[in-house]
Simulated assay, not measured.
Amino acid sequence: MTDPAGRVVCLYDEQAEGWIADRGRALGGPGKSLDEVAALDRFVAALPVGARVLDVGCGSGWPMGAALLERGLHLTGVDASPRLIAHAARTLPTGEWIVGDMRTFDLGRVFDGVLVWHSLFHLNPGDQRVALGRILDHAAATSTVLLTEGGEAGVSLGQWRGERLYHASLGAAAYQAILGAAGFAPDKAATAPPHIFLR
């Protein structure tokens, strides 16, 4: 039987057009599971003007990357799906788009802000810890991280386009401990998920 966690990257690449259609170009607002507009506004408010932002697991670049570019930020997106990155490069040419695995990528530079939106939780718990180390290595000495944490610790399998879609969470306390060890503290003004961490 295919490992559903190991299948995620291939699934998104094979179904790239379906994902682009299903995700759409509009940010989710109030009434969605997470208010993306409010989360991005909080994130951007914590960044310097014209900040350099890394979007890990950026997918097609829509709608999160597009919204960051519209807000005047310098955006680099990394995703393991070549087809999704190709779409981002074609439709959002002012961004920088790189094919890379969040567990192994190394850009050799740091960023003022790091966005990890609905991507980390597709990895199994061990790989999440590896990926977080890689991701946080790309955070500047003073930086902001916006992370969707995936809820309570555990594993769940959803369904998308007829296939199992893997999700896992280490739990909020574990994420805070990992970020805390890297010098980040939760933004006390951000009382609702997703949480923002500041260094």
Score class of each variant (00 low, 15 high):
Gly77Tyr: 04
Arg23Ile: 15
Ala26Leu: 11
Ala39Arg: 07
Asp55Lys: 07
Val56Thr: 07
Arg23His: 02
Arg25Trp: 00
Ala21Tyr: 03
Asp22Lys: 12
Leu75Asp: 12
Gly57Gln: 04
Leu75His: 06
Gly24Tyr: 00
Ala51Pro: 00
Leu47Asp: 03
Ala26His: 11
Asp41Glu: 15
Leu34Tyr: 11
Ala39Trp: 06
Ala16Val: 13
Phe43Val: 06
Asp22Cys: 06
Thr76Pro: 05
Arg52Ala: 12
Leu27Asp: 06
Pro30Asp: 12
Gly31Asn: 13
Val44Gly: 10
Gly72Thr: 14
Trp62Pro: 00
Arg23Val: 15
Val78Ser: 07
Thr76Lys: 08
Gly77Trp: 01
Glu36Pro: 06
Pro48Glu: 10
Gly28Phe: 00
Asp55Cys: 03
Leu68Arg: 04
Leu73Tyr: 02
Arg25Ala: 14
Cys58Gly: 03
Trp19Asp: 04
Ala45Lys: 04
Gly18Met: 12
Gly57Ala: 08
Val49Ser: 15
Ala45Val: 07
Ala45Asp: 07
Gly65Glu: 01
Val78Ile: 15
Ala38His: 11
Arg71Phe: 06
Gly29Arg: 10
Trp19Ala: 05
Gly61Phe: 10
Glu36Met: 08
His74Cys: 13
Ala21His: 10
Ala38Gly: 09
Leu75Ile: 14
Arg52Ile: 04
Gly65Asn: 11
Val49Gly: 12
Leu40Val: 06
Val44Lys: 11
Pro48Gln: 06
Trp62Phe: 12
Gly24Pro: 00
His74Val: 15
Pro63Ala: 06
Asp79Ile: 02
Gly77Thr: 02
Ala39Ile: 08
Ile20Arg: 12
Cys58Ile: 07
Asp41Ser: 11
Leu75Glu: 13
Glu17Gln: 15
Val56Arg: 03
Gly77Asn: 04
Leu69Gln: 12
Gly24Asp: 04
His74Gln: 14
Trp19Tyr: 15
Leu47Gly: 09
Gly50Trp: 01
Ala21Trp: 02
Gly61Lys: 07
Gly65Leu: 06
Ser60Glu: 04
Ser60Lys: 05
Leu68Cys: 14
Glu17Cys: 10
Gly65Asp: 02
Cys58Tyr: 00
Arg42Asn: 09
Asp22Gln: 09
Ala67Gly: 09
Ala39Glu: 10
Arg52Ser: 14
Leu54Phe: 03
Gly28Met: 05
Ala67Tyr: 02
Lys32Asn: 14
